[in-house]
Nucleic acid binder design. Structure first.
Length: 300
DNA sequence: CGCCTTTGACCGGCGC
DNA sequence: GCGCCGGTCAAAGGCG
């Protein structure tokens, strides 16, 4: 987790240094213009010029240090990845306990793939650094789950926030909560409740390392489009000032917003339109419909 | 009143 | 077969 954020902050700092450099140059130039455009050798403008040179040199040194730090960071990250890979293989070789979840093959939505790409570093880190040196079964299982499912990591805006609401643009119904062995924080189970036939489920649990991070694991693929226009805002936050980090406002309950939408007179119409839209995108449905219209049985 | 969350009970897979 | 564990069910209560 820290690696990803470090990456961002390093890049940010590098850009900041460049910006400071430009600002200093512009300030110096404007001062020179204000003093007549030329830079007399023994004036205040001259001092500014020397100050500019000194700061530029300092910025250059800082950039070099930053570059070196980035290189070291990348090397360390690569080493960690290799180590994790070896550790994972060793765990599998010793015969880990494989549970039901490991067998389930799931699909991922495009948005979730995007998020996975953003949080690849987190995925390795969060499942490895929290426990003893021993290779625990549960950890291996968790890695398998996260590798096969779409896992999204969400940083909450409040550290004391105890809710597990992740605004991802879909409508979810909580059907269970469980405290698992390897994490003191409860794991919540959600089903997609927008369409009755939608098979998607998600598990939401706080990270054992950092309780401000929520880990959401999605299983299945939505057979409908997104429900809440505003609910998709969480995903859009990837491209804001806080890249690779989603924000969750613990005070906002998506289900409450959905509850209101149910009371709107146009909701049923919207529901029908959404379902029709999703069905027309389903090739199986198209085939079945074509077969029904032509009086033949659909080939499955 | 309808939908939601909560939560204890239950079920089934897995290792021993 | 037994116990552990994660996942699911369903009744009860809350909320708008």
């Amino acid at each position: 987790m820290e690696f990803t954020l470090l990456d961002t902050s390093l890049d940010f700092n590098s850009r900041t240094l460049r910006v400071h450099d430009e600002v200093l140059k512009q300030e110096a130039q404007s001062n020179f213009i204000g003093l007549g455009g030329d830079m007399p050798p023994n004036t205040e403008a001259g001092d500014l010029g020397e100050e500019l040179k000194r700061l530029s040199g300092e910025n250059k040194k800082l950039r070099e240090m930053l570059t070196a730090m980035c290189d070291k960071y990348n090397n360390l990250r690569n080493q960690l990845m290799e180590y994790m890979s070896k550790l994972h293989n060793n765990c599998n070789a010793t015969g880990s306990r494989k549970r039901k979840a490991e067998k389930t093959s799931t699909t991922t939505t495009p948005n979730n793939n995007l998020l996975d790409a953003h949080f690849n570093g987190i995925n390795s880190e969060s499942s490895s650094s929290d426990e003893d040196s021993s290779c625990k079964k549960s950890r291996v299982d968790d890695q398998h789950i996260k590798a096969k499912n779409s896992t999204v990591y969400v940083r909450t805006t409040g550290g004391s926030d105890t809710t597990l609401i992740v605004k991802d643009g879909y409508q979810w119904r909580k059907y269970g909560q469980k405290v698992t062995r390897d994490n003191p924080y409860p794991r919540a189970y959600f089903k997609c409740s927008f369409a009755p036939t939608c098979p998607v489920k998600k598990k939401v649990q706080r990270s054992v390392n950092d309780m401000s991070i929520i880990v959401a694991t999605y299983e299945g693929e939505h057979n409908h489009s997104k429900v809440l226009e505003g609910g998709g805002s969480a995903l859009n936050l990837i491209s804001t000032d806080q890249p690779k980090t989603l924000l969750v406002n613990g005070n906002e309950k998506m289900s409450s917003a959905v509850g209101h939408s149910h009371k709107q007179p146009d909701f049923h119409k919207l529901l029908i339109e959404k379902m029709a839209s999703s069905l027309t995108k389903d090739p199986n449905f198209k085939a079945a419909l074509a077969a029904a219209l032509s009086g033949k049985k659909p080939s499955t």
